[in-house]
Design a protein around this nucleic acid. Structure first.
Lengths: 138, 138
DNA sequence: TCAGACTGTAACCGAGATGAATACACTATT
DNA sequence: AATAGTGTATTCATCTCGGTTACAGTCTGA
């Protein structure tokens, strides 16, 4: 995994703290410490996942499309998820070897269970939770 | 994560199926369908983690250093683990922004919990389990 | 209606990771 | 000594990633 997940969470938390005021990619980029184009790329993915929406034109910017209480970290994780495999399997073992022929299926089952365990944990945390965490840190 | 984890599991399962007979990197490579040098690189890591050992010279090869029942997928995962972060965080948010200043710590806690959930699941599965899975698949 | 403030998206770059391949010194067995 | 192995360094092509520039499209307000 790359840092897109972390940046996306950052974006959503920031949007939540804006309380309905649209945020420009320029403004978000200054908080994340990167450039606006990258932010817009991520916002495009978040919008496709139904987590944010954008107002075009002057005075526009990005907004949460749903309540911060309803957006969990799994939602963000899936929205950023290009390659579906957290632990990719080796592509082409030798089918003429008993182990090589079966290892893929066997391992896939076990790895899928582990990934489910992780996403279940991510599902417990919402963007609103993170905002609360930040407030209590003050 | 890359495919090293999957290949390492493949290697260990193969070694277990050898029942104490040393396996050459050439033989392992033919089952994994890659080249011997890559296998030896991975074996070197596995040996450093105490999971395998090698016999040099003619008739030599790799062996399990511990019982297959005692080697779990977390052991393999950690042995291959170069970069410690499954979900890396964004390196340098803007410290002058309230969200940017705190998001890292807040997110880190939650992500660590999720990663623990995954490794706990991996800890439940041993190399011996995988060998059993393969046998029952026949 | 036009200028300006925005978004959305494509394109390109440099850096780093990855797997494949080669090479070679070293070690044990026969 | 010859041979069959390991261990490790190096090189290479490819891919991914984040950073950046560029530009067309959209909205607002003077």
């Amino acid at each position: 995994m790359n840092t897109r997940f972390a940046v996306a969470v950052h974006i959503l938390t920031l949007l939540h703290s804006q309380q309905g005021e649209p945020a420009t990619s320029e403004y978000i980029a200054s908080s994340v410490n990167t450039n606006p184009s990258l932010i817009r790329r991520l916002l495009s993915k978040l919008a496709k996942a139904g987590l944010t929406r954008s107002q075009m034109g002057m005075g526009g910017g990005a907004l949460l499309a749903r309540s911060a209480e309803s957006i969990t970290l799994v939602d963000v994780y899936r929205a950023m998820d290009d390659s579906p495999d957290l632990l990719p399997l080796h592509p082409s073992p030798n089918p003429r070897c008993p182990v090589g022929r079966r290892i893929r299926d066997v391992l896939e089952t076990r790895v899928a269970a582990a990934e489910r365990a992780m996403t279940s944990e991510l599902a417990l945390v919402t963007i609103a939770d993170l905002t609360d965490d930040i407030s209590t840190l003050l």
